[in-house]
């Protein structure tokens, strides 16, 4: 696998604030890479360094085998970008902005532009000052997706889109992957990352805390299990990898580490299983495990909201 993006030990400070604190990021060519973290973790800052808009204070940054600061223009010919917070020129129409950005980028497909306008239901004749946040985002998305790039850098591209548009966006990302293009998708919406990404990197406080394929990461997560047995289960609490056990007579609920599943199920069969449900591990849980310690007594129902807010 060749590498599209390679970042190691990236540091970026703004005054006394250390926005990036030794961040690492590896994105292989042709993969859809999820770049996850809560607000303020440093996702947009990292992307701006990758685009040569900010200068790294320390660390090694390579993008498409070039230096994003010194080779910015040459590299930008080969990538397309959707900013997280799209601001457009108030008196210029969406259609004009799409054409402008497409022409400035270099390669631009008018047929695809027309298709995308229809798919995303965007009126190109409206002046940008009258667009909603979602429509401004669509302008940037159409401009990026209509261009012929090797690398697509998408900074929370769906944060203003409705579910229908999100579905269209997912189709587009799958098409890009099918065509062998590389996508860096920053997001704090885990379902999106789970649906689209081959690999993800999770960052926090400007540092990478976890990186790998979804199955690798799932391996690190816990499976929620609910079991009803003929005889009340005993000894579960003593098994390694069992957490948050709540037993009530013949019923028991607990979380199990993925690598402890085999032993747990083996143990349960000794008590006569009547029913067994297990909820597959989600990135959400992994996420909460990494960020949860900031949350006071993270209640499962409220915690995801807290992460998203």
């Amino acid at each position: 696998m060749t590498t599209a993006i390679s970042v190691s030990g990236l540091v970026k400070t703004f005054g006394s604030v250390r926005a990036l604190d030794g961040l690492d990021l590896e994105v292989g060519t042709g993969e859809v890479h999820g770049f996850l973290g809560p607000n303020g973790a440093g996702k947009s800052t990292t992307i701006r360094v990758l685009l040569g808009l900010l200068r790294a204070d320390a660390g090694r940054v390579r993008l498409l085998d070039g230096d994003p600061w010194h080779d910015a223009v040459a590299l930008h010919r080969r990538l397309a970008y959707v900013p997280g917070d799209v601001t457009l020129w108030p008196a210029i129409t969406g259609g004009e902005a799409i054409d402008l950005l497409g022409r400035l980028q270099g390669g631009f497909d008018p047929t695809r532009r027309a298709e995308l306008l229809e798919r995303y239901d965007l009126d190109p004749r409206k002046k940008a000052r009258t667009y909603s946040k979602g429509n401004r985002q669509k302008v940037a998305l159409v401009a990026a997706l209509a261009s012929d790039a090797e690398l697509y850098v998408l900074d929370e591209p769906t944060s203003g889109l409705d579910p229908l548009m999100e579905a269209a966006f997912r189709d587009d990302v799958r098409r890009l992957r099918h065509e062998g293009r590389t996508v860096l998708l920053s997001s704090h919406i885990l379902a999106e990352a789970e649906a689209l990404c081959d690999r993800v990197s999770i960052i926090r406080h400007g540092r990478t805390v976890q990186s790998g394929s979804l199955s690798e990461l799932r391996h690190l997560t816990r499976t929620a299990m609910a079991v009803e047995t003929v005889r009340p289960v005993t000894g579960l609490a003593d098994l390694p990898g069992v957490h948050d056990l709540r037993a009530d007579g013949s019923r028991a609920r607990f979380d199990a580490d993925t690598d402890a599943l085999d032993g747990v199920v083996r143990h349960l069969t000794g008590f006569g299983i009547r029913s067994l449900t297990s909820s597959p591990p989600t990135l959400e849980e992994l996420f909460l495990r990494h960020y949860g310690e900031d949350l006071p007594e993270a209640a499962p129902d409220h915690a995801p909201e807290a992460v998203r807010s």
């Binding site: 020129w89 008196a91 210029i92 129409t93 259609g95 004009e96 902005a97 799409i98 054409d99 402008l100 022409r103 400035l104 009126d123 190109p124 004749r125 409206k126 002046k127 000052r129 009258t130």
Partner: peptide, 26 residues
């Protein structure tokens, strides 16, 4: 009330100079 504008950009709006001129001509 704002009127609808051009659905596509003219040839002039295809360069940084074209953009700067468009933004500043008024």
């Amino acid at each position: 009330q704002p009127r609808p504008g051009r659905p596509t950009a003219t040839r002039a709006l295809g360069s940084p100079l074209g953009l700067a001129w468009r933004l500043q001509r008024g």
